[in-house]
Design a protein around this nucleic acid. Structure first.
Length: 669
DNA sequence: CAATAGAGCGCT
DNA sequence: AAAGCGCTCTATTG
């Protein structure tokens, strides 16, 4: 049944574990090692949500061995028949689909038996648990254990990312790249329950085996590239922070969300009707192509006859290749529509799009759409009420920031009125508060730190606002005489410096002429020479390193920029902007990560584990859920964790933090 | 029918 | 010629 796979790493008679005796042998072997790799195969409606999924396979690997343990695989190896499943199509017609009938699977160990036997190993402080994307495997298995697997941990995806942030870090792409082995051409991992037993057994085994091999292969690589400090920080986050954050999720108010669904649905209908009324015809407002035809088409054909102002990205490329342009190559994005304030259709479309975006992404996306398996409800009941379980990915970006998905909780609206209502959904349960802290102007603080002096640096030391500092300098006025309009331009210039934007972008962004934008940027160069010297130095240092140029962030993590040496000036310029921005964005990310480690330790030292926990990070902001009675204390601990002496000593510019104790997230801004 | 690309837009 | 993300919808392709 398990197949006779003859590979040199078989120390066990069978690579598929079906009996308690076989499992005992595996456990006693692993106990004699100092590390082992493990991996899970999951099923269920929410197989990708580690707090909710069902683990049906566990695989283990270590020195010279790799085994798979099935715990509820539904089918065997052979097809023994066929049945016809009737299915009603969209057109109402019933079609019959042929469906294979599989032989039953072999008897498998029960999940509680497996995890009971593995617990001493998973709980051992003397065994390093290795996994590829470790939080997923630790949280998936924690449901069946007294507690999540204990540190020490090693995450081969983290190592892959530290060694090359530009490559795909999934197990399959990594295995293909490193070993030239592609063991899952059929996509077994996507849907294990549909594949024959032996195939899944082998697939699961290989997941752990290659995880183990990567771990062994890379044992000296981090030190070799002098990434030790960066890895220490990443491991602290893995071992002390992220498992806890992802396990708890974020609290949401379902009744409010349901009310919003009703209100927004009405608003969307009204605004959709308004678009058709203004246009004098029906069309799909969600289609950018149809939108372009309506807006830019000739008046003679009942369209608006507006003059297009901007090409889409695709249109831009076409133009560069010298191909003829169509009406649909022109952009109909919100920035463009705002350029036609007197056109009723454009303005109606803007209002419609604002509502429909909120409804589909932030309401329907959460509550789900009935009878649509692609849009399930992603709110789950917990002991303290309904919660959503985002995945925070500590290795999901090239700069070092964390990303968030399923749902993305790093792009919850803040600006529009309806957006604030959406944000209000995130509300602490009765007896709890949200303690929210965000670092003030962290990217500009980091920029001033690296510049090491000059007007921005000095201004921060005197406690001034960076946009006012920039405005005062480029307009040549005292700080206390900067107008609101001047400050706005100062803000745009500051963004331009951090992102590397040119005069054209500054002009459109600030609503000023191209000539004036050029003047302002030139003046910035005069007033902030150290900032421009810093940029030059960043590029020079990066290029002096090879073979692939790179910058190092505050903690020493690398951002590699091959295109810094490109002969194509477009690529090269982009790489230059990325180098500067990565130093700033990446170092700011380092600071917030250190703060997360510090707040976790502070809470634990004070025995507050059960009354306060980090639930979110949004780049420069941390959100903690804390019991009412400890909220004030937690706020002070958070202040110290984010800007206390231990953090401040790393940065030569005074750090600031805004802390709010609130019930709902929308009260924090 | 499913997968992918493009446009667009929410956030820092 | 603006850095870094993820999600939804449409249109196209296989």
């Amino acid at each position: 049944m398990t197949g006779a796979h003859v590979t040199r790493d078989h120390v066990f008679p069978s690579s598929t574990i079906l009996t308690e005796g076989q499992l005992d042998d595996v456990v006693s072997y692993l106990k004699r090692q100092d590390a082992f790799a493990f991996d899970v195969e999951t099923t269920g409606d929410h197989r990708g949500v580690p707090t909710q999924n069902e683990v049906t396979w566990l695989s283990l690997a270590s020195h010279g061995m790799a085994v798979a343990i099935p715990m509820g695989h539904p089918i065997g190896d052979k097809i023994i028949g066929e049945e016809k499943i009737p299915k009603v199509g969209k057109d109402g017609k019933t079609r019959h689909y042929r469906h294979p009938i599989w032989e039953p699977p072999p008897p498998q160990l029960r999940r509680h038996v497996v995890f009971e036997k593995l617990w001493p190993l998973f709980n051992s402080p003397d065994h390093t648990k290795v996994a590829h994307n470790l939080p997923f495997d630790v949280i998936s298995t924690a449901k069946y254990l007294p507690a999540p697997a204990a540190p020490p941990y090693a995450d081969t995806r983290q190592i892959a990312w530290l060694l090359d942030e530009n490559e795909r870090t999934g197990l399959k792409p990594t295995t293909k790249r490193v070993y030239r082995v592609d063991y899952d051409k059929e996509g077994v991992g996507k849907c294990v329950e549909k594949f024959p037993f032996s195939k899944v057994a082998e697939y699961a085994r290989l997941d752990s085996k290659f995880t183990w091999l990567l771990y062994r292969r890379w044992r000296d690589a981090i030190a070799h590239e002098r990434l030790d400090d960066a890895q220490r920080m990443e491991n602290d986050l893995l071992e002390q922070v992220i498992i806890d954050m992802l396990s708890h999720g974020a609290p949401v108010l379902v009744p409010w969300l349901q009310q919003l669904r009703v209100d927004l649905a009405i608003e969307v209908e009204e605004r959709e009707a308004a678009v058709y009324a203004a246009a004098g015809q029906l069309f799909n407002v969600g289609s950018s192509q149809q939108k372009a035809n309506i807006l830019f088409g000739p008046k003679a054909e009942g369209c608006q006859g507006l003059r297009p102002k901007k090409l889409t990205d695709g249109g831009e490329k076409k133009a560069k290749r010298g191909e003829p342009l169509l009406i649909t190559d022109y952009s109909t994005d919100a920035d463009t529509l705002k350029e036609y304030p007197s056109n009723k259709v454009a303005q109606a479309i803007l209002r419609y799009q604002e509502s429909v975006k909120l409804l589909s992404t932030y309401v329907d996306g959460y509550l789900g759409i009935e009878d649509d398996p692609k849009k399930p409800c992603i709110i789950f009941e917990s002991e303290t009420g309904p919660r959503v379980y985002t995945t925070l990915d500590p290795h999901g970006t090239v700069t070092g920031r964390w990303s968030s998905y399923g749902p993305n909780l790093q792009n919850i609206p803040t600006r529009s009125e309806s957006g604030k209502k959406i944000r209000g959904i995130y509300t602490a349960p009765d007896g709890w508060k949200l303690v929210v802290g965000d670092l003030g102007q962290i990217e500009l603080v980091v920029l001033a730190h690296f510049a090491g002096g000059g007007k921005l640096f000095e201004g921060f030391h005197e406690g001034h606002d960076p946009h006012t500092i920039t405005a005062a300098a480029i307009f040549g006025v005292p700080l206390d005489q900067v107008t609101k309009e001047q400050r706005t331009i100062g803000k745009t210039i500051n963004f331009a410096i951090v992102f590397g934007a040119g005069p054209k972008t500054v002009a459109t962004q600030a609503g000023i002429s191209l000539t004036f934008a050029k003047q302002m940027l030139a003046e910035h160069g005069q007033q902030f020479p150290e900032v421009h010297k810093l940029k030059a130095k960043i590029l020079k240092v990066a290029r002096s390193r090879g073979p692939v140029p790179f910058i190092r962030t505050l903690i020493g993590r690398k951002r590699r920029l091959r295109d810094l040496n490109s002969y194509d000036s477009e690529y090269r310029s982009r790489a230059e902007r990325q180098a500067v921005n990565s130093l700033i964005q990446g170092s700011a990310a380092d600071l917030i990560k250190l703060a997360m480690i510090r707040i976790r330790r502070a809470l634990r030292e004070r025995g507050l584990d059960d009354s306060a926990r980090l639930i979110l990070t949004i780049h420069d902001e941390l959100v903690i859920e804390a019991r009412d009675e400890v909220a004030d204390m937690v706020a002070e601990l958070l202040r110290d964790a984010m800007i206390g002496p231990g953090i401040q000593e790393r940065i030569s510019v005074p750090l600031t933090v805004d802390i709010h104790i609130v019930q709902s997230w929308n009260e924090a801004k």
